[in-house]
Design a protein around this nucleic acid. Structure first.
Length: 397
RNA sequence: GUGGCCGUAGCUCAGCUGGUAGAGCCCCGGGUUGUGGUCCCGGCUGUCGCGGGUUCGAGUCCCGUCGGCCACCCCA
């Protein structure tokens, strides 16, 4: 009998921890620096929370959720996405009564059922930042700049930022009313896949044009774009976001066809795309979600935030040839030779540890040489040979 | 979810046209060397992913299954 980690999951071994901790520490440091506070939500939520906000027609909801029924016949779903649970917590605990905006962050596991690949897991980790309770475009720019800074700090230099505005309740419906008929009119010029996308979500039909057949690309380029259809408020909001990003020196390109997979997004949407190693190059994705809280039954509460895959960031780091931070060695290692008083050694170790000294000895019955090797592996700053006559009393911190 | 490639010791891999499994690294021991480094010697570990089938005989062929990877879908 042999057990393996379930498909699409992975262990994070001790040898990998230094890299993980490095990224996590930089992330936390930045979040605190920018005034974001940590929040944690449950691994599972009411299924409807995700279904309502992500959209009943979205890929996440239709084919990627880990949904199960508990013994009380409640339909629950493993955290499929970070934002909805946080907004739920915001509403549930009345965070709208605290000073706005509420600037929150977390890192946690996310669950999506799908075919695993490198950088694509059924259980993966995400960094997440949300600013809830303000529609100030400065916040859009702030969270984007925060992640941009994180990339710089950990050493990822090869990436680009794609930016778009997909409008709001004011202008998007009108745009869709123009796009939908247009797509139907040109249906005969489109390929099967695009027609299916158009039927499910018209915006989606324009997504990732570069991957479509050349002839189809030609046609789609003539389609009305959301950018040309934005209402004044959205247009101005987007212009300000870009102005702030320019002021921050955050390079970005406007991609008019960038759509995101979750229905709750409004106005600003963006993706950080990393080095083209595999196809799993999206490092982070986010956007504004001014209608999300209302969708959950709360008052109108604008918000903006992003999720960023940690495994993918680590992959990009490796690709960039960034070395993991060196582990600091222990302070002292006791080598027990023949006849050594091991009890006294253990007592001394406990005493040193109490004083904050990292002390170790051998627990594997190694030879003296083997113990010396082990001490070296642990990076011991001091190595003490203990023989029968050794007096440990003069070993101090 | 669709299509394709792959699956041999903890790790990286070898194993020709089917004949009953190997190397390096790692780990442990010994020696050398004034040290944890080097070099030398020795040792440990595998139901050849799993289950069936073909065959006198399968790691090597066939089917299924599980898992990894690649493309698509979509995304983090």
């Amino acid at each position: 009998m042999k057990f393996e980690a379930p498909r699409g999951t992975h262990d994070i071994l001790p040898s990998e921890q230094p890299r993980w901790r490095h990224v996590l520490r930089e992330f936390e440091r930045l979040c605190e620096l920018y005034g974001y506070r940590r929040i944690d939500t449950p691994v599972f939520e009411d299924t409807e929370l995700f279904a309502r906000t992500s959209g009943h027609g979205s890929d996440v909801v239709t084919k990627e959720m880990y949904t199960f029924e508990d013994r009380g016949e409640r339909s629950l779903t493993l955290r499929a996405e970070a934002t909805a649970p946080i907004v739920r917590a915001y509403l549930e605990h009345g965070l709208h009564r605290e000073p706005q905006p509420q600037k929150l962050y977390t890192y946690e596991t996310i669950y999506r059922y799908g075919r695993p690949q490198k950088g694509r897991y059924r259980e993966h980790w995400q960094l997440d930042v949300e600013a809830i309770g303000s529609e100030d475009p400065a916040l859009d720019a702030e969270v984007i700049q925060l992640y941009d800074t994180l990339l710089a700090r950990v050493g990822v230099t090869e990436y680009r930022l794609e930016l778009n505005s997909i409008g709001d309740a004011e202008c998007r419906p009108a745009y869709l009313e123009r796009l939908q008929p247009w797509l139907e009119e040109h249906a005969s010029d489109l390929d099967e896949a695009t027609r299916e996308q158009a039927a499910r979500n018209p915006l989606r039909a324009l997504d990732n044009i570069a991957a479509k057949p050349p002839a189809v690309q030609e046609v789609l380029r003539q389609a009305p774009t959301i950018g040309d259809s934005l209402c004044d408020a959205c247009r101005e909001h987007f212009a300000e976001v870009r102005r702030y990003l320019d002021a921050y020196g955050v390079r970005h390109e406007v991609v008019p066809t960038l759509v995101r997979g979750l229905d709750y997004y409004t106005r600003t949407t963006w993706e950080f795309v990393g080095p083209e190693g595999g196809s799993q190059s999206t490092l982070s994705g986010g956007g504004r979600y001014d209608g999300l809280a209302e969708e959950l039954g709360g008052a109108h509460t604008p918000g903006v935030g992003f999720g960023a895959g940690i495994e993918r960031l680590l992959l990009a780091l490796e690709e960039a040839g960034v070395e993991p931070p060196a582990q600091e060695g222990i302070d002292v290692f006791f080598i027990c030779e023949e006849g050594a008083d091991r009890t006294a050694v253990l007592a001394k170790i406990a005493e040193l540890r109490a004083a904050g000294v990292r002390a170790e000895t051998d627990y594997a019955g190694r030879s003296a040489k083997g113990q010396r090797t082990q001490a070296g592996r642990l990076g011991a700053k001091r190595v003490i040979d203990v023989r029968s006559e050794t007096d440990l009393s003069d070993v101090t911190a």
